[in-house]
Amino acid sequence: MLELKKLSMQFGALKSLSELDLTVNKGEIVSVIGPNGAGKTTLFNVVTGIYTPTSGEVLLDGKSIAGKDPADVNRLGIARTFQNVRLFLNMSVIENVMAATYANTKSNIFSSALGLPGARREEKAVRERAEELLNFFGSRLTGYRWEQPAYSLSYANRRRLEIARALATNPKVLLLDEPAAGMNPKETQEITDVIGRLRAEKDLTILVIEHDMHVVEGISDRVIALDHGVKIAEGNFDSVATHPDVVEAYLGKGSADRK
């Protein structure tokens, strides 16, 4: 589904990613772990078109998408959330989701202004779809919250809304950047379930950056570990978590031996 070939991203002398190879198969949930500054978010930014890679390939269904405009990458089927939650804060909750259907809808400024039947029908469908997507999160984002401005949401709800917004773009691949950050243990458990349900119900391929190892353990089919832009380990959770290079990257040189 998503394939990275010798992907490198360099800022001046800083190699954020070097010659990274990664294949994510359809329906798979792959977690990316690594210490701060390992290049995880850079990886997402390159895949979603925010950065153009210095070298290497990003392939979606065998077609190169490297260097494409973020909007085009999204239209090809890759949606994402952001590490520092980038909602449209001053728009209502439901509008956040409705806005993300932009690429899949057609009504233009004239048909909207004239209130043509097609535009009205589409608007109604968009609203229903947004409600359906928000209901995906159980009672967390329903009813009275729809008309609330997004900034009035709690941190955890903002993360949920961001996922709903990403879903509204009808993606094939979903990139989640630290979906459980800032959540309490109960909410973390909930988001773990949500990610599982996303794959099952929405037929998604998911790439997750996460620091919470309980989440990583709970959801991942496969884990890859990055350090200084290099892939240092890949495999199932247990093999990566105990991999000496990974332990060293997190805890410093020699830690693996002492254990």
């Binding site: 973020p70 239209r75 949606a79 728009m91 509008e95 932009y102 009504s107 535009a119």
Partner: peptide, 26 residues
């Protein structure tokens, strides 16, 4: 009418956060 439908919403996303807006296919 335009303000409360598709194009109006998209305009507001541009005002709010152009990068997020782009990443949502706008």
């Amino acid at each position: 009418r335009v303000n409360r439908t598709r194009v109006g919403r998209a305009w507001r996303t541009v005002r709010e956060d152009p990068l997020a807006s782009q990443s949502m296919g706008i």
